[in-house]
Amino acid sequence: MKNGIYHLGLAAIAVLCLLCIFGAFLGAENARAFFNSIPLAVWWIGFTVLLGGAIVVFRALHKRPMLLLIHAGCILILLGGLWGSRAGQKMTASITDKPWIEPCYLKLYPGRQSSTAYRTTDGQPLDLGFSVGLNDFQIHYYGNPVTVLFIQSDLGQWDIPPAKGADYLLSAQAGKVRVLETFSNLKIRMENGKPVASEGPAVESNPAWLLEFVSPDDKVTQQFVFEKFSGHAMPGYQFLVTPQKRGMVRDYISDVQVFRDGQPVAAKQIEVNYPLHYAGFHIYQDSWGQDESGQYSVLQVVPDCGVRLVFGGYFLLTIGLSGHFARKINSLRRLRKCS
């Protein structure tokens, strides 16, 4: 019986190794689905039970503290993994009668807050039960980033330098573009019923560019582009043009505050590698973007189910392995010296 359990354990380790290799050929998304499928769920639970049984059955595994730490640590990791999986979270939610909040993301513009997040898997809106406000969002670059004018249309996307000068050929279908004028403080006044653009006083600032597009059939259109109103559009504008910075990003930082029932309950400068932890959730800096309403920050909200169990398990495992093998090496060394 004991022998049988040990052989089963040995075989289980070999099978798990082969499953990992198989999973590596699937790619991350398919591997996640595979290892979370029902047959594999049965496998994980069976493996955990086997380990538990081994600790009970084998004297060495519960009498020798290091071996106990090792095997119990593995059980904790497996339990944490089971609990943290989608199915595990769903089950906990139904047992505890709490709403089940899956990993989701928030899209926030500076100065705004929201309690609605969108599920990572299918984009469905979810109510978080608390709201997250973005005070400020900053991007830091290695060195100085260069500003470009980013031009988008159905025909393609282009970057052009924001300086007055030469024609740029976008493509045969899209035609040419030229920066006609640059302004550091654009003011528009009306002259004889027509809008006229000119530089305003230097104390204010409203950087802007006037672009001239020439279509392949020689139709000329002009467009204003504003740094501060990046969504600016007028009837007849063919292209969406936004000034953007280009450079290698060193950091992006969201200054975030969490509110529950209108009261601030947590705050942090969230960066990659430094999430905010609040009420069973980690809130991460995920990415950022820019659209007609300006620059926004994308935050990821992830429940922390099972994470403490997993890391506790890892800790026991590492301690146990170090202790066990330190002793082993020492005793073998002595043995060798004698012989």
Partner: peptide, 18 residues
């Protein structure tokens, strides 16, 4: 801390577990 999950089922992770 960086990606929000302690295990991502990435091929490289799976090989290291193997």
């Amino acid at each position: 801390l960086a990606w929000g999950d302690w295990w991502g089922w990435d091929p490289k992770e799976l090989w290291s577990l193997a």
